[in-house]
Structures are given as structure tokens and as C-alpha cells.
């Protein structure tokens, strides 16, 4: 009986700790978002964050998208051949890329690259008193450090996903025409005929949410890091892991909202 009570107590403590953490993250996000719309604004910081999250993530996202499109075309060719439905490869590739794989894989790549970098930068600033120094220089750290990154995350990832969508389809096109012997003109026509505006828009909305989540977890974990190098390392790991899990969880929620009637 005693052991059972201990187990229940431990479970209760874990649930309370998780709820408390969710509350802290929600308050942090609310503060960060409110700082986006209140002056003073820091356009240079937004531009810098856009470059870090968007421009510098472009190569890894582009490579991921191309290879994903190629693998999709190859896999679907072997799978669809069982039903003599190889002509559907183009539609399968474009739907998969625009609705799911483009935003999710780009989000995960950006979480690993830019989210980790944000957590490391803010964590280092925290443990070396740079964040306290901002406060003593009449600068709200949430406004100067966090708000520009949240805004940049929500803007940069949809832009990356536009590129990922195009390159993903291109990857499928390359395999379909060069490896599977499809007519290129017909493949592209099938792609354009099948894809709908909602497919692309839903992917871009997902990307905006994922970009915000990546920036939020990078900033939250970095901003609240403690200790020295070990604390910064832990914050970086937590930022990537939590952002990746949240991307997958929110992907399900957003898919329910967009596509399930």
C-alpha cells in the first residue's frame, strides 16, 4: 500500500511539474508575442534573425526537400505498381510534400540548426550576465532578444517551405523522368492539375506555427538556462527535443483542423 501511495505521489508531482512548465512556457510566449506589437521595435534584430533562421537554413532544407521528393517518387512507384496506379505518382508526391513533409521536415531541420543556435546564444548570454546587462541599459530583454526571433521564426519557415515544396516536387520529377521513364510534361501537368490552393496554404500555415514553436523553445530554454557550459548544453538539447516533439504534436492538431470535416 505504501509503495502504491509513493508511486501515485510521484506521478502527481510529475504531472504538477509538467503543468507548471507548460504554464511558464505559455506566459513566456504571451510576453514575447505582446512585445512584438509594442514599440520600440528592433528591425535590425528581426532582419538578423530572419537571416539566421531562413537564409542560413536554406541549404539543409533544400537538400532535405530534394531527397525527400526523390525517395517519395521511388517508393510510391514500387507501391503503386501493385495497383497499376503508377500514374498517381505525381499527385502523391505533390500532396505529401506540400501538406506534410515540406513543413514538418523543414521545421525539424530548422529546429536542429537555428533552434539549437538560439538556445546556445541566449543561454551563453544568460550565464555571462549579458541579459542582465541589457536590463541595466534600459532594454527589455524579451523585446530585444525574444520578440524578434519569434517574429522571424513565423516568417522565415513559410518562406523556406515554399522553396522546399518546389524542390520536393523537383526531386520527384527527376526520379520520375530519369529513373522511371515518365514524360516530363505529363508529370508536371499531373502535378499542377492535382494540387489545390488549400494544400499549399495549409502547409504554409503549419510552417508559420512550426517556425514560431522552434523560436519559442529555443528562446525559452536559452533564456532560462542556469549554470555554466553544462547548463547551456542542456538548454540546447531541450530546445531541439521539445521543438521537435511540439512540431509533430501540432502537425496532428493542424491536420485535424484543416482536413478533417
Amino acid at each position: 500500500m505504501g509503495r502504491l501511495l509513493d508511486a501515485v505521489a510521484a506521478l502527481g508531482r510529475a504531472v504538477i511539474a509538467a503543468a507548471r512548465q507548460c504554464g511558464r512556457i505559455t506566459l513566456f510566449a504571451a510576453d514575447g508575442v505582446s512585445q512584438i506589437v509594442r514599440p520600440p521595435f528592433y528591425p535590425r534584430m528581426v532582419a538578423r534573425s530572419l537571416a539566421e533562421i531562413g537564409y542560413f537554413s536554406l541549404p539543409v532544407v533544400a537538400l532535405t526537400a530534394v531527397f525527400t521528393g526523390m525517395v517519395l517518387a521511388l517508393q510510391s512507384a514500387t507501391g503503386l505498381a501493385r495497383f497499376s496506379a503508377e500514374t498517381q505518382i505525381a499527385s502523391l508526391v505533390v500532396l505529401s510534400v506540400t501538406r506534410e513533409l515540406g513543413p514538418v521536415l523543414a521545421g525539424l531541420m530548422v529546429a536542429g540548426r537555428a533552434g539549437a543556435a538560439m538556445a546556445a546564444e541566449l543561454g551563453t548570454m544568460r550565464v555571462t550576465d549579458q541579459i542582465d546587462a541589457l536590463t541595466t541599459l534600459s532594454t527589455n530583454p524579451m523585446k530585444y532578444l525574444v520578440a524578434p526571433r519569434l517574429l522571424a521564426g513565423a516568417i522565415a519557415l513559410p518562406l523556406l517551405v515554399v522553396v522546399a515544396d518546389i524542390l520536393g516536387v523537383l526531386g520527384g520529377y527527376i526520379i520520375a523522368t530519369l529513373r522511371l521513364g515518365f514524360n516530363g510534361h505529363v508529370y508536371l501537368e499531373n502535378t499542377l492539375n492535382f494540387v489545390e490552393t488549400q494544400d499549399v496554404v495549409s502547409g504554409l500555415v503549419k510552417a508559420a506555427v512550426f517556425g514560431f514553436l522552434v523560436a519559442l523553445m529555443g528562446c525559452y530554454n536559452g533564456y532560462n538556462s542556469k549554470g555554466g557550459a553544462q547548463g547551456v548544453g542542456s538548454a540546447t538539447t531541450a530546445a531541439v527535443v521539445s521543438a521537435s516533439v511540439l512540431i509533430l504534436a501540432f502537425d496532428y492538431v493542424l491536420t485535424e483542423i484543416f482536413f478533417v470535416r
Partner: peptide
């Protein structure tokens, strides 16, 4: 109305020296 010299300097390593010095002037 206050100024602070931190133990380790706490200079912003993403900004050049002059922007560190002028940070309060630019912000405040």
C-alpha cells in the same frame, strides 16, 4: 539613471566594441 560594470564585463559578443559602448545611448 544607473550604470553597472559587471564582474566579467558582460559585453555583447555579437556587437562591435563601439556598439557595446553606445548601446544605452541608442536604446535609451
Amino acid at each position: 539613471t544607473m550604470g553597472m560594470l559587471f564582474q566579467n564585463g558582460a559585453l555583447f559578443d555579437s556587437l562591435p566594441v563601439w556598439e557595446n559602448v553606445a548601446f544605452g545611448l541608442l536604446a535609451r
